[in-house]
């Protein structure tokens, strides 16, 4: 199960989504994290905790995308978040 740490606010400015660290989280994460529209869907699911398969489901349900591509995208997304130190 993957879960995002608390202490972020997702904002939309113009047509750009971003996660901004707030409060004590700013000591750890510097700056903001860009999110695409599909990234925001995954992010919201990850706020409550989600498995890789469930995340891939979200993509296939909301976008016209092959399962294998969705799974690859989810992996890359989680990998990115891990590198940023955003996952619990």
């Amino acid at each position: 199960m993957y879960k995002i740490k608390d202490g972020f606010i997702v904002r939309k400015i113009g047509n750009q989504f971003m996660a901004v660290p707030v409060g004590g989280r700013t000591s750890e994460i510097h700056g903001i994290i860009a999110l695409s529209e599909s990234g925001v869907l995954l992010w919201s699911a990850l706020e409550n905790g989600a498995e890789e398969q469930a995340l891939a489901d979200i993509l296939t349900e909301n976008y016209d995308v092959e399962r294998s591509v969705a799974e690859k995208d989810v992996k890359a997304f989680l990998d990115g978040l891990q590198k940023q130190g955003v996952l619990q």
Binding site: I33, A34, G39, D73, F77, Q84
Partner: peptide
């Protein structure tokens, strides 16, 4: 490709240009 990257200057330039045009 789903973005989850730290923003660089390019992003800030783009959003800044957008804000100027749209008076944000």
């Amino acid at each position: 490709m789903i973005d989850c990257q730290r923003f660089g200057d390019d992003f800030f330039d783009a959003i800044s240009g957008w804000a100027r045009v749209n008076k944000i």
